[in-house]
């Protein structure tokens, strides 16, 4: 029989896991890695659940983001940097566009990737992003700037901020 805390945990997982998986997917670029990251994060927060159950979301997202950046640190031996990403086959323009964005994200260093995802997808402020990643606000600013510069290089149409550019990019 499960403890009362466990029921609250179950409810949180059921309701919030899809959102966590979306963030994790942006952070990792792979479905399997996203599932693994979210699963690890959820297991990791269980010992602390008694203390965070009233408002678990900020802590869980903090663990998720830090796990994503720390994982890269411990698993970098498995990754190989390449000058050009291999061509991918895509049946449609939408998928091609998604692959372009994903590959561009994957070319960012993990911390820059995390800053971009937290700032532009999770809509966190610079202060919240800094607290989530455990870094200084100044670092968030510089990492954001560097990441955007890099993304504009990798996705040239991103430089144009009007919707038509986006539309053309999306095909």
């Amino acid at each position: 029989m499960q403890e009362p805390d466990g029921h609250l945990f179950d409810a949180f997982v059921i309701t919030r896991r899809p959102a966590l998986l979306r963030t994790a997917y942006l952070l990792t670029g792979h479905a399997e890695d996203a599932e693994d990251l979210v699963q690890t994060t959820l297991i990791k927060v269980v010992p602390k659940w008694g203390r965070i159950q009233d408002n678990p979301e900020p802590y869980v997202r903090k663990v998720l983001a830090r796990e994503a950046t720390n994982r890269w640190r411990t698993r970098r031996w498995r990754e190989t940097l390449v000058e050009h990403l291999p061509d991918r086959e895509g049946p449609g323009a939408s998928l091609t566009w998604s692959l372009t964005v994903r590959d561009a994200l994957l070319q960012l260093p993990p911390r820059q990737r995390a800053v971009i995802v937290l700032r532009y997808y999770d809509d966190l402020t610079e202060r919240e992003t800094a607290a989530t990643l455990g870094i200084a606000i100044g670092t968030v600013k510089s990492q954001t700037s560097d990441a955007l510069t890099r993304l504009r290089t990798l996705i040239p149409d991103l430089s144009a901020s009007d919707d038509s550019s986006v539309a053309s990019l999306r095909g």
């Binding site: 963030t23 942006l26 998604s98 964005v101 994903r102 995802v117 997808y121």
Partner: peptide, 14 residues
């Protein structure tokens, strides 16, 4: 625009 692109990519999440 970047936000929109990320939201679109996130839809492919498991």
């Amino acid at each position: 625009m970047l936000t929109n692109l990320l939201e679109e990519l996130a839809r492919e999440a498991p």
